[in-house]
């Protein structure tokens, strides 16, 4: 493996900008239905690397709005697809990056998301009714960014998330579901945004999370699994939200991420020497950001956006 060296920021920027144009490869086509999330991963990475100006903001905003379903108030993953909260959050996040929430019919979107809350406080992802704590996070995060959290029953939403808490301190997709770092991010994130982190046993969960660090320095998502760059985000952000990130070895983790770079063509992969993709490129750079890597903007661990963007949204003087 050798020395990982530094972050190949320029190569990653080039990789993201060109990947955007390669729409016809099989790999791009398989991801076609979630292009809006792809846009969020790519553009957030560019912003973290101080290169958001490499894309045409107007073009991006126009394309995003072409994924909007005015009759439902939700966004689809791509033009022609069905609306879903997953892509509604991505759309809102990207518009936050460009400070362009003004193009939205905020109340219509907030009503779409709020309308998916169930009686027990849980959230469905769309009209078909799949329930998952991922959707709790997404709904709460979207509404909070739009300053519309009051449209849902927050207390019930929190109660449902707490009912998904496990005896190892983690959280699952639904009551009884096994703890998983991605799911833990969603639940801890939703609790953080609603000021409800007192429901988390921070020492118990913190220990479970810090034990995700494997011998190779990388983080896995569940016990006895292989490390994967994407957990650099899920685990690190959760550890930061509960103030236990000092329990892992950041230097080793940074090395692991840097080792997963394709330094020639840009991009970051799940594990060293695997094929790169935009998803892992984002999670790798975001992970480095959370470890205060030089030259990378700091991220907010709960909203998954650059810190300056989140501070602007919540601290800018309300008109």
């Amino acid at each position: 493996m050798g020395e990982p060296g530094e972050l190949a920021a320029d190569e990653h920027v080039r990789y993201i900008v060109t990947a955007e144009k390669k729409k016809d490869s099989f790999e791009s086509l398989v991801m076609e239905h979630l292009r809006l999330s792809g846009a969020y991963w790519g553009l957030t990475t560019l912003d973290l690397l101080h290169k958001l100006q490499a894309v045409d903001a107007r073009e991006v905003v126009d394309w995003i709005m072409s994924c909007y379903h005015p009759e439902s108030g939700g966004f689809a993953g791509n033009v022609g697809h069905d609306p879903h909260v997953l892509y509604t959050l991505s759309a809102v996040q990207v518009l936050c990056l460009f400070d362009r929430l003004d193009v939205l019919d905020v109340d219509k979107i907030a009503d779409y998301v709020a309308g998916l809350q169930k009686e027990d406080g849980s959230f469905a992802g769309d009209i078909w009714g799949e329930v998952d704590t991922r959707f709790s996070y997404i709904s709460i995060c979207t509404l909070s960014l739009l300053h519309r959290l009051h449209k849902i029953n927050v207390e019930k939403a929190v109660e449902y998330i707490v009912s998904c808490k496990n005896l190892d301190g983690g959280f699952g997709a639904m009551p009884g579901g096994e703890s998983h770092a991605g799911q833990i991010f969603c639940c801890v994130g939703a609790l953080a945004i609603t000021g409800s982190l007192h429901h988390v046993d921070r020492d118990l969960l913190g220990w479970w999370l810090c034990e995700r660090q494997c011998r190779d320095g990388g983080l896995n998502g569940r016990p006895e699994k292989l490390a994967d760059v994407c957990y650099s985000w899920w685990v690190l952000s959760s550890l930061i939200m509960i103030d236990r990130v000092h329990w892992i070895d950041k230097e080793k983790l940074a090395k692991f991420i840097l080792n997963c770079q394709d330094k020639e063509n840009g991009g970051i992969s799940d594990r060293p020497d695997n094929a790169v993709d935009i998803y892992h490129t984002y999670f790798g750079v975001a992970g480095l950001s959370l470890m205060e890597y030089p030259g990378v903007k700091p991220m907010d661990p709960a909203y998954a956006l650059p810190l300056d963007v989140v501070n602007r949204i919540f601290l800018r003087k309300q008109q």
Partner: peptide, 29 residues
Amino acid sequence: AHSIDTARYICLSPFSHKVEPCDAFEECR
């Protein structure tokens, strides 16, 4: 000294909807 604040979400703040933008902010502005 740090760009990442690990106590950001365990304190009361506008990000967790536990503090409304307050007079002190206005006074400082």
